[in-house]
Design a protein around this nucleic acid. Structure first.
Lengths: 117, 117
DNA sequence: ACAAATGCTTGCAAAATGCAAGTGTCAAGA
DNA sequence: TCTTGACACTTGCATTTTGCAAGCATTTGT
């Protein structure tokens, strides 16, 4: 695994469902990629355009990690040059409920948020 | 703020509700502390006993951060020696829905989890 | 031929994390 | 009184992760 690589051989901190979920997507960026996929974005360049400005190397690493976790699927839509699109799996779409809960919490408790996006 | 300090002067990555929520609690440990508080734990030593084994310095820093974010409230239950208990605020209890969604997702999609805890 | 777009990778500095050990206050027991 | 232990942290430092900037390979448009 690369320089920014993460553990891939199941070093779960515990068997708690919450902790396992956080082991997979509990960082500052993964759920923002899932959010973008849920709102229709599919391509590397589209993720980079999001207002949070994810660094390119972090994006590439997270996409690989999310794919190896079975949350997204990478599909080539062009062979020459190789161009990829990313899609949520059923497992990934299941995270929508987590994002909805965060969204509702933020709307209720964080004054700085804006309802769109 | 200490050596492991985090930004405290609202440097939100964006005004997206999801991103703002992750700016507050989107790290490996904060939501585990909230989980412990929701299941009745109140004291520093109790958080340390959880199976994930949070490092002591990280716990101290996260407790301060969660308090400054208005998610928990620190209350002394003894003056001599100074002993503190931590409680969720209404804002903090609102995160229960996020944790419930993660719990349900993990039960459905992660084979390694165990239902208790 | 040349510039621009796309989807990455690489190098490196800065920040966060994790481990172990230490500190200060007090209570209880020898 | 002296010591031991619990509790709630703090400190030092090595390791890991993050973030920024630049570079690279391929192909399309002019």
């Amino acid at each position: 695994m690369g320089k920014t690589g993460r553990r891939s051989t199941v070093p779960w901190r515990s068997y708690c469902p919450i902790a396992c979920t956080l082991d997979l997507v509990g960082d500052r960026w993964s759920l923002l990629i899932v959010r973008d996929l849920l709102t229709g974005k599919k391509r590397y360049g589209e993720f980079l355009e999001s207002p949070e400005k994810i660094p390119t190397n972090i994006l590439a690493e997270r996409l690989k990690h999310l794919e190896s976790a079975g949350i997204i699927k990478r599909k080539l839509y062009s062979w020459h040059p190789p161009r990829a699109e990313y899609h949520l799996t059923a497992k990934g779409r299941g995270l929508a409920s987590v994002l909805q809960a965060m969204y509702a919490w933020a709307i209720k408790h964080l004054p700085q948020v804006r309802k769109s996006s």
